[in-house]
């Protein structure tokens, strides 16, 4: 049985998720600061930072899960065909998902230390 995670769409899916997350972070922050900016004195401990961090953690977890699934698919592909070539897409996909997860975490880190709006 072929694993579904060998589909070539996985080559870009992780980073598509990353892009949507990125837009949500930037857009969400901008709208929050335009509509209801938290007081500057609160520093980084505001509801805006909290929501952004939650989104970051959730997205990163989903991407890590996807990376793991692609990795399993690559190993399954190994058992089925024994041809290294057919592992190409799931292996690259797994690294793409993993990289996307790392990018999400790295870009999300400043949310811990910086106040949202100034």
């Amino acid at each position: 049985m072929r694993h579904r995670a060998v589909h070539p769409a996985h080559l870009v899916l992780g980073l598509v998720v990353w892009a949507v997350w990125f837009v949500a972070m930037y857009g969400g922050l901008s709208v929050a600061c335009a509509v209801a900016p938290p007081p500057v004195a609160d520093g980084a401990l505001t509801w805006v930072n909290g929501l952004l961090l939650l989104l970051t953690a959730f997205t990163a977890a989903a991407l890590l899960y996807a990376a793991w699934r692609c990795w399993l698919a690559a190993r399954a592909e190994d058992d089925v065909s024994g041809d290294a070539r057919s592992r190409f897409i799931p292996v690259v996909s797994a690294t793409v998902h993993l990289s996307a997860a790392m990018a999400v975490l790295a870009i999300g880190v400043p949310t811990i230390v910086l106040p949202p709006c100034p």
């Binding site: 990125f22 922050l29 870009i107 400043p110 106040p115 949202p116 709006c117």
Partner: peptide, 8 residues
């Protein structure tokens, strides 16, 4: 632009 957004 807010510094946090710049940080992203």
């Amino acid at each position: 632009i807010p510094l946090l957004a710049q940080a992203f």
